[in-house]
Amino acid sequence: MPALSADVLESMREPGTSRLSPSRLAELLEMQQQELAALAGVHRNTLRMHSESPRLQAMLRDLVRLLSAATAIQSDWQRLVFFIKNEPVAAFRHKTLLQVVQEGRTDDAIAYLESVASGFAG
């Protein structure tokens, strides 16, 4: 299956910058702003007033990496978002992939997705 489409990736960009847009990413993930702020470990006002925050941008990049990896196993966007937000993964003690990313374990979540995509169970 294809990687994250250029259109989806572009829709996450903050207009006129090379930064990811917290509000656009929250909208794509069907999350409230405060949920995204909690995921990134920043105050909710940071999303609006300091979207250039290195900590915030690093988390947004990790989310984009996760989404890109997830497209290898799920091409339907709504199902993909549901999966990463809600599906408990046994390999991670039944945490969701978003919870794993929040713990700073994006590489582990991506390795799991790559394993599933290649036919191995994690």
Rank of each mutant, 00 (worst) to 15 (best):
Met1Cys: 07
Met1Ile: 09
Ala3Tyr: 13
Ala3Ser: 15
Leu4Ser: 04
Leu4Phe: 04
Asp7Gln: 15
Leu9Trp: 11
Met12Leu: 14
Glu14Trp: 13
Glu14Val: 14
Pro15Asp: 10
Ser18Gln: 14
Leu20Lys: 04
Ser21Lys: 01
Pro22Gln: 03
Ser23Leu: 12
Ser23Arg: 10
Arg24Trp: 06
Leu25His: 05
Leu25Asn: 01
Leu28Ala: 15
Leu29His: 08
Leu29Gln: 05
Glu30Val: 13
Gln32Gly: 11
Gln32Ser: 14
Gln33Val: 02
Gln33Tyr: 12
Glu35Cys: 08
Glu35Ile: 03
Ala37Glu: 00
Leu39Val: 05
Ala40Met: 07
Gly41Lys: 02
Val42Arg: 08
His43Ser: 11
Arg44Gly: 07
Arg44Ile: 10
Asn45Leu: 06
Thr46Asp: 03
Thr46Met: 04
Thr46Lys: 06
Leu47Pro: 02
Met49Pro: 02
His50Arg: 14
Glu52Val: 10
Ala58His: 11
Ala58Cys: 05
Met59Asp: 03
Met59Asn: 04
Leu60Val: 07
Leu60Lys: 01
Asp62Glu: 13
Val64Gln: 05
Arg65Gly: 04
Arg65Val: 04
Ser68Cys: 12
Ala69Asn: 01
Ala69Cys: 06
Ala70Phe: 03
Ala70Glu: 09
Thr71Arg: 15
Thr71Tyr: 03
Thr71Asn: 04
Ile73Met: 07
Ile73Ala: 03
Ile73Phe: 07
Ser75Arg: 13
Ser75Asn: 09
Ser75His: 08
Ser75Val: 11
Asp76Phe: 03
Asp76Met: 05
Asp76Glu: 14
Val81Thr: 09
Phe82Trp: 15
Phe82Tyr: 15
Phe83Glu: 08
Phe83Asp: 09
Ile84Asp: 07
Ile84Met: 02
Ile84Gly: 06
Lys85Trp: 07
Lys85Asn: 10
Asn86Ala: 10
Asn86Tyr: 13
Asn86Val: 15
Asn86Cys: 15
Val89His: 10
Ala90Pro: 11
Phe92Gln: 00
Lys95Asp: 09
Lys95Trp: 09
Lys95Gly: 02
Thr96Trp: 04
Leu97Ala: 03
Gln99Ser: 12
Gln99Cys: 08
Val100His: 00
Val100Thr: 06
Val101Arg: 02
Gln102Asp: 07
Gln102His: 09
Glu103Asp: 06
Gly104Val: 14
Arg105Trp: 08
Arg105His: 13
Thr106Pro: 10
Thr106Arg: 09
Asp107Asn: 13
Asp107Gln: 14
Asp107Pro: 03
Asp107Met: 10
Asp108Ser: 12
Asp108Gly: 10
Ile110Gln: 00
Ile110Arg: 07
Ala111Cys: 02
Tyr112Phe: 14
Tyr112Gly: 03
Leu113Asp: 06
Leu113Ser: 05
Glu114Leu: 03
Glu114Asn: 10
Ser115Leu: 00
Ser115Pro: 01
Val116Gly: 02
Val116Tyr: 00
Val116Leu: 04
Gly122Tyr: 00
